[in-house]
């Protein structure tokens, strides 16, 4: 069945220049392998289609049950240059949690 990441994970996002980072954190340790398998850099790049001028990098932190994504070119120039309401990418965390992934029945 398909579920939103919101049901499986929480997240926080921040900025560094024109790059946003989204840390995606499994709500329970046993959900982490599922996130690691399903939430790839390529899938995240597809999810944010049209919203990034650069690519997506992914880093794994199994010790924290977390994945860290760098979204390059996400912030309209970033910092003081950006005209965006969310120039610091604060809400990209929940934007990622909109993504749906396929999970085995009974995962939740």
């Amino acid at each position: 069945m398909k579920v939103r990441l919101l049901a499986l994970a929480h997240a926080r996002s921040g900025d560094k220049g024109d790059t946003a980072n989204v840390g995606l954190i499994a709500r329970r340790p046993e959900l982490y392998p599922l996130l690691e398998r399903e939430v790839t850099a390529a899938r995240v790049a597809r999810h944010f289609t049209g919203m990034l001028t650069g690519g997506v990098e992914r880093f794994e932190l199994p010790n924290l049950g977390a994945l860290n994504f760098l979204l390059h070119g996400a912030l309209g120039g970033g910092g003081t240059v950006s005209l965006k309401t969310d120039a610091q990418g604060k809400t990209l965390s929940s934007a990622l949690l909109r993504m749906e992934i396929e999970v085995p029945d009974g995962t939740l």
Binding site: H10, R12, N21, G23, I25, R27, L64, N68
Partner: peptide, 16 residues
């Protein structure tokens, strides 16, 4: 643990 983890990943680049 979840509240501290959220702060740990805040503004993170390469975690290594």
């Amino acid at each position: 643990v979840p509240s501290v983890t959220e702060q740990l990943v805040y503004e993170m680049g390469d975690p290594h």
